[in-house]
Design a protein around this nucleic acid. Structure first.
Lengths: 186, 186
DNA sequence: ATACTTTTTTGATTTAGGTCAAAGGAAACC
DNA sequence: GGTTTCCTTTGACCTAAATCAAAAAAGTAT
């Protein structure tokens, strides 16, 4: 989906506004397995994914990577609290496929927020949407068996489940690779 | 904390704006153990808690109550997606103590959102703050032992842990009452 | 193609925390 | 104040999923 269509799906901008807003984004082509942000860095950009797939993850004390979220086409993506509060990121962001994104800096985003009342609204709506999804995952993780969590995953990210390494999905779901492998076996 | 101080802590309203905004809220006194919303109802109000404590919970298929969140003084509270999207609530909201709240309807809230650009900003900031907290909990729940989760709880809600029944906390943390009791023993 | 690395699968074993059951304590109600 | 109901603690036992280890499979690079 194009950025402008995505924006329109949340808030009714007119065509001039839309043009101005999208002009603040830059298109970037990012190869597979590239880190967009590293843990500890302040996240400078917010991204819209036009094509491809990205995951966020963090490192446990023992060095294991824990996938925190998957972002696919047609979504905003960032290390959200790092970007908005300009604090060190708790997460890495990594492309899982060759990707095309539109990016915008914090400064430009703030400029749009203050220029357009409707842009603030969009920010609020997108945040609430994300909040709902995270709450959803939380409910799945908190009280479901490993098999049920995997089913939640299939429902929430149907496209992803066979495009990324099993280990990434396992850690996203809070289980080991061995367990997920056994679940898939049937 | 008074509502106006809370609003000011997120966004710099001037005193006229503040007066207008707070005038759209109604003060309500709500006794302990009152349901503010039931599962399946559309949530009509957003609340600011001036005094007291509230929890949200849902019922599992087997009828068990699962605490989903605790809200204490100085926070906005609602069945967020039900309120903003006007969909049936997945949760119950229940006061845990005699409480004093300020409430506002969806219509009035929308009115404020469209009247004040800064109000949208406040909505966005409050949403992101909530999002950060939920992500936090998710991380705690997903990969920590029962004991560590309890420690997360003590850090996140220091005031709550000895004011509410143990069972509510246990389900909030994704463990049984028996387990939490054993953890507390030491 | 061949060698090397990484990921996935499979099996054996362990363990944290769940379940079941029953006894103490606290709080609510008459 | 005494009953009744609910909440918490404790113990015995069980189970889902983790850990450990090693083989098989899939990718990547030379």
């Amino acid at each position: 989906m194009e950025l402008s269509d995505f924006l329109l799906s949340l808030t009714p901008f007119d065509s001039h506004e839309l043009k101005d807003i999208t002009s603040h984004f830059e298109q970037e082509f990012i190869p597979k397995n590239t880190l967009l942000i590293e843990q500890g860095q302040v996240c400078k950009k917010l991204y819209y994914i036009k094509k491809g797939m990205v995951r966020s993850y963090y490192l446990k004390e023992d060095g294991k990577e824990i996938t925190q979220w998957f972002f696919s086409v047609g979504k905003f993506m960032s290390s959200v609290d790092s970007f908005f509060q300009q604090r060190p990121s708790l997460y890495y962001l990594e492309t899982l496929e060759d990707s095309v994104v539109y990016s915008i800096s914090k400064e430009k985003m703030d400029l749009l927020f203050s220029k357009y009342h409707k842009m603030e609204q969009l920010g609020r709506l997108a945040s609430i949407e994300m909040l709902t999804k995270v709450v959803n995952k939380l409910n799945a993780i908190q009280f479901q068996s490993a098999r049920e969590r995997y089913e939640y995953m299939l429902a929430e990210f149907p496209d992803i489940s066979h495009r990324v390494p099993l280990g990434y999905i396992a850690s996203y779901l809070g289980m080991t690779s061995e367990t997920l492998s056994r679940i898939r076996r049937g």
